[in-house]
Amino acid sequence: MQKRSSLAILRAVLFALVLRELRGRFSARRMGAFWFVFEPLANILVMFGERVFLRGVELKGFDYPVFLFSGVVPYLLFKNIALQAMSAVDANRNLFAYRQIKPLDCIVARVIVECVLMGIVWLCLLFVLGFWVGYDVSLVNPLGWLVTIFFGVVFSFALGIIYCVIVEAFPSVKTFIGLSYIPLYFLSSVLIPAWFLPYEVQGWLAWNPYFQLIEELRANFFPGYPVPVGVGMGPIIFASIVTLCVALGLYQARRQNLVSL
């Protein structure tokens, strides 16, 4: 029998893990697929109703539902990647008896699943807002938007590895990490434009990589979007690369602890 190459083994492992993740995600609940799509849609509908009907917020030159859509879906993607990666090793620990499967494979498989599923959600909501409701959902710079999404995925993937290593050493921290994404939701300019905030507040928020990512995504989505000072691809790329290097270093140092049964 011909011996398979390392790349062929990796491809087979990732394919099997992705199928396992998809089956586990949707077979446990009959309404799993519905709730995955309903989460971002519910965020958009609730915040649109709260802001527009109760507070009367208007964005001159921007449709508020599209504004919410451009921030909510990417934020949920980045959040889900980090949190799903955090629990990937613990959920697949029994599989490490097979020497072909590594902890990093399980994390990568979950990242792939989240990107595919949220991509489908993005296209569905894009169709609803653009073709059904009639909003303008065309991207002013699709390539720049894709590049920003890519570095956002890299950053969240790296954070997920770091979370995974931390939770392996300190399991009680897992709840705190999950809860931390609630205030981050409000500190990342997902719900309101950054230009609504005082200049000093924008400067502090610029230290938040998620704030950088959401604002840069919207700058590539809307024509003439006013980008806050300090926001750009430079800080995003720097944060992604540094976080990834730290994550891989921690993973290499704690790899044996992660595979222990």
Score class of each variant (00 low, 15 high):
residue 203 G to Y: 14
residue 172 S to C: 07
residue 183 P to S: 06
residue 250 L to R: 10
residue 197 L to R: 07
residue 198 P to C: 10
residue 190 V to W: 00
residue 161 I to M: 12
residue 242 V to P: 05
residue 140 V to R: 13
residue 164 C to A: 12
residue 167 V to R: 03
residue 175 T to A: 15
residue 179 L to P: 05
residue 170 F to H: 04
residue 134 G to D: 07
residue 214 I to F: 03
residue 125 L to Q: 06
residue 213 L to T: 01
residue 240 S to V: 08
residue 193 P to K: 07
residue 214 I to R: 06
residue 171 P to E: 05
residue 194 A to T: 05
residue 228 P to I: 09
residue 225 Y to P: 11
residue 161 I to G: 03
residue 170 F to C: 12
residue 169 A to E: 11
residue 158 A to E: 03
residue 143 L to E: 10
residue 155 F to E: 02
residue 177 I to V: 03
residue 252 Q to T: 14
residue 222 F to N: 05
residue 172 S to I: 04
residue 237 I to R: 09
residue 252 Q to H: 14
residue 249 G to D: 09
residue 216 E to F: 00
residue 211 F to S: 10
residue 228 P to N: 08
residue 246 V to L: 14
residue 211 F to Y: 06
residue 183 P to E: 07
residue 199 Y to N: 15
residue 173 V to E: 11
residue 230 G to F: 03
residue 122 W to T: 13
residue 213 L to W: 02
residue 172 S to P: 02
residue 232 G to C: 00
residue 222 F to V: 04
residue 217 L to G: 02
residue 141 N to A: 15
residue 220 N to S: 03
residue 192 I to K: 07
residue 170 F to Q: 02
residue 248 L to Y: 06
residue 201 V to I: 09
residue 236 I to Y: 09
residue 177 I to T: 04
residue 200 E to H: 14
residue 160 G to Q: 01
residue 203 G to R: 15
residue 242 V to A: 10
residue 223 P to L: 10
residue 253 A to L: 14
residue 167 V to D: 08
residue 254 R to D: 12
residue 245 C to L: 15
residue 190 V to H: 08
residue 129 L to K: 13
residue 131 F to P: 06
residue 168 E to V: 01
residue 175 T to P: 04
residue 229 V to G: 11
residue 203 G to I: 13
residue 132 W to T: 02
residue 150 F to N: 08
residue 161 I to Y: 05
residue 174 K to Q: 04
residue 173 V to G: 05
residue 192 I to H: 11
residue 241 I to P: 01
residue 200 E to N: 11
residue 148 T to Y: 11
residue 247 A to N: 06
residue 187 L to W: 01
residue 238 F to C: 11
residue 217 L to V: 00
residue 153 V to H: 06
residue 191 L to P: 15
residue 155 F to W: 09
residue 243 T to D: 05
residue 238 F to R: 10
residue 127 F to T: 12
residue 156 S to H: 04
residue 220 N to T: 10
residue 224 G to D: 00
residue 208 N to L: 00
residue 233 M to A: 13
residue 240 S to T: 07
residue 252 Q to C: 13
residue 141 N to R: 12
residue 214 I to A: 04
residue 206 A to G: 11
residue 218 R to Q: 07
residue 181 Y to P: 05
residue 174 K to C: 07
residue 128 V to F: 13
residue 188 S to V: 09
residue 156 S to G: 03
residue 172 S to G: 05
residue 151 F to A: 01
residue 150 F to K: 10
residue 132 W to F: 14
residue 131 F to M: 15
residue 133 V to T: 08
residue 223 P to N: 02
residue 226 P to M: 03
residue 180 S to P: 09
residue 194 A to F: 08
residue 123 L to R: 09
residue 139 L to Y: 01
residue 227 V to P: 09
residue 254 R to L: 15
residue 204 W to F: 10
residue 242 V to G: 01
residue 130 G to H: 01
residue 143 L to G: 08
residue 133 V to N: 10
residue 238 F to G: 03
residue 238 F to D: 00
residue 154 V to Q: 00
residue 249 G to V: 04
residue 249 G to M: 07
residue 163 Y to V: 02
residue 214 I to Q: 04
residue 212 Q to R: 04
residue 130 G to Y: 01
residue 253 A to E: 15
residue 164 C to M: 02
residue 209 P to F: 03
residue 179 L to V: 13
residue 140 V to C: 14
residue 251 Y to A: 12
